[in-house]
Nucleic acid binder design. Structure first.
Lengths: 154, 154
DNA sequence: TTACTTGCAAAGCCTTTGCAGTAAA
DNA sequence: TTTACTGCAAAGGCTTTGCAAGTAA
């Protein structure tokens, strides 16, 4: 769920506000990391973000990107996306949504599914404790990959 | 979704059959790795499995556990569970189910949710490509953790 | 000025790989 | 006997951390 360049200014203003509210200093690097992540809807890895960011801030280091992402995630400003891969992926935390993952090209797409968001959870789940979030992950093969390989992997 | 010791024999027999069907050799280590995983409903990491396995096979190496789990997962005999943590967790692939994760103690519980299994996916998802699986991950704080900390983390 | 951030470099942790010996088929 | 699998050790990849310099407040 990215931000269009038009909304970016107000989006960043809100982000700055959230940072201050969380007691986080608003640095150039932090603003740019957030901005870059908000621009992308590709759920990038820290390394991909770093590559992009170096075009604007040639001296930014990969560990700053990691540290910044961890800080943002700890404050709920962004989400670390659950996957079965070794490299972590990130997204800005905005609208509630779910994920569609292509098992072949590993692309992650967002989608909304209101009926599941609203559905009552099984009673055993409610009885388990306090529920905070629910997220659906759908796996499959996207059209692009289906066309490229006649017999795509499971 | 573990196996009770009573069902274990037939479960292992089915597993052996599946291995042979997949062209995998049935070794002592593989049988024990699968057996141990089937006994646990805790979605263990490779390292935890390794610790358990050494009680029965003192010489089994951690890399064999990793390799074995990767092989099983590649053949769909077990599942690698998606989490946002760095260490991978595993489970035997049996009944369709979903996961409940405690953000505090990181325990993973299984639950079933038939209505979501049966629900029609949004049309944009069906249009995206071929869908193979869907899985719900619910995050919250379990009762045990709720009782231990008066103000548990988000 | 003070405390938080950054960049650098190094370390850490989890996982994978090459190789020679071993065992399943 | 043939070829896959295992154990060992080492390497690899992703991420985190200590420290001194830099910078937001």
């Amino acid at each position: 769920m990215p931000t269009t360049p038009q909304n970016m200014e107000e989006h960043l203003a809100l982000f700055e506000q959230a940072c201050r509210a969380a007691g986080l200093r608003v640095t150039h690097q932090r603003l740019q990391v957030y901005r870059q992540l908000a621009l992308l809807d590709t759920h990038p890895t820290a390394e991909i973000l770093h590559q992009e960011l170096r075009k604007k801030i040639p001296t930014i280091s990969l560990d700053t990107v990691y540290r910044t992402l961890a800080t943002f995630a700890a404050h709920g400003l962004i989400n670390k996306v659950e996957t079965i891969e070794s490299q972590a992926r990130f997204e800005v935390a905005l609208m509630r949504h779910h994920h569609l993952i292509c098992s072949s090209c590993k692309t992650i797409m967002d989608f909304q599914w209101q009926s599941v968001d609203d559905a009552l959870l099984p009673s055993e789940v409610s009885a388990w404790g306090r529920i905070d979030t629910r997220s659906v992950v759908v796996y499959g093969i996207c059209h692009t990959c289906l066309q490229q390989t006649p017999l795509p992997g499971k």
